[in-house]
């Protein structure tokens, strides 16, 4: 076993006590003769301990506890009731449906009636609505609303000098509406650097995705503020297959939601309400980046892997 193999195949299982006896002996042997991997193992165990310490279990609220006890009592009470009482209770909503269905049952022997009633009930039973809805992701909702808005109304506002004339008036430049005013096309290479500079001066990350290789051009960028005052950078890319909108903003509390269909390093890919989304976390500064498109998620993954600006994917 060499160090590479130990780190990639054994280290985690070793620290977790999950190795089979033979593998465990081999791993023990390696670390006893290798100070580097021994240090790695100590670090891995320290990481486990600190995760356990920092992510404390939440306490179930007292109100929930009493609610649960009440529900268990209720379940006991139902289970203890004689079967006829349970049947009565069971049929109550069914009776409420009216006489049309219940009348013939009056004439049938009780046992058969019960069987028929259960069969009918099963047939008409509406599947119960889910107790909990999967959580919508506010950040993704924001991305969708911007994507939709930008489809018919995208006015870039950075870099300012590219869209202002000498009098300071901003050129109205609306995508797919007034192609005469497009400025970005002939200055693509510059658009990239100009935008990066603009984002930097707004205290936002300046490492834009360079989708040029994948066949996209930057159509423009915006810097706006979210309702709470946080700056947010938008970049719109256009390619033969479709558009990609990039959003980048400060969000120290977001955690990647459950349900990613794939990931590359610290990027997670989602299919969300008909959109493909790539969510990335900047390793420093608490910024997140969201790429959103109507294109298939596999296409987005290929484009992102080719464009990776910061090496987060690696």
């Amino acid at each position: 076993m060499d160090c590479r193999e130990y780190i990639s195949e054994y280290l985690a299982g070793h620290a977790d006590g999950e190795l089979a006896p033979l593998a465990r002996r081999a791993a023990d042997e390696h670390v006893s003769g290798c100070p580097i991997c021994r240090a790695q193992l100590i670090e891995e165990r320290a990481l486990k301990a600190i995760v356990r310490q920092s992510v404390a279990l939440a306490k179930a609220p007292a109100e929930l506890k009493s609610r649960i006890r009440g529900a268990l009592d209720e379940a006991d009470r139902r289970a203890a009731a004689p079967w006829t009482a349970r049947l009565t209770e069971f049929l109550a909503p069914f009776r409420a449906l009216g006489s049309r269905i219940s009348e013939p049952l009056v004439w049938a022997p009780a046992g058969i009636a019960a069987v028929i009633a259960i069969a009918i009930l099963a047939a008409i039973a509406v599947p119960r609505r889910g107790l909990i809805a999967p959580p919508p992701v506010p950040e993704f909702e924001l991305a969708i609303s911007r994507f939709q808005q930008f489809q018919h109304d995208f006015v870039p506002n950075v870099p300012a000098e590219a869209y202002e004339n000498q009098t300071g008036a901003v050129y109205a430049w609306v995508i797919n509406r007034d192609p005469v005013h497009r400025v970005a096309d002939e200055a693509d290479s510059d658009a990239f650097n100009d935008l990066a500079r603009s984002f930097r001066s707004a205290n936002l990350p300046d490492d834009l995705f360079d989708f040029a290789q994948a066949g996209y051009t930057i159509t423009g960028g915006r810097v706006d503020q979210l309702p709470d005052g946080r700056p947010i950078a938008y970049t719109l890319y256009e390619g033969a297959a479709g558009e990609i909108v990039s959003l980048c903003f400060y969000d120290p509390t977001m955690a990647a939601p459950i349900g990613a269909v794939n990931w590359l390093g610290l990027r997670s890919f989602y299919q969300y309400k008909g959109y493909s989304i790539c969510l990335s976390f900047y390793p420093t500064g608490h910024f997140i980046s969201i790429l959103i498109t109507r294109m298939p998620v596999m296409q987005l993954m290929r484009d992102v892997a080719a464009a990776d600006p910061s090496g987060i994917s690696r």
Binding site: S54, M254, A255, G259, W263, F281, H286
Partner: peptide, 10 residues
């Protein structure tokens, strides 16, 4: 740790 954990794919 929370920050690093939150940044992990879910």
């Amino acid at each position: 740790i929370e920050l690093a954990l939150n940044a992990l794919p879910a």
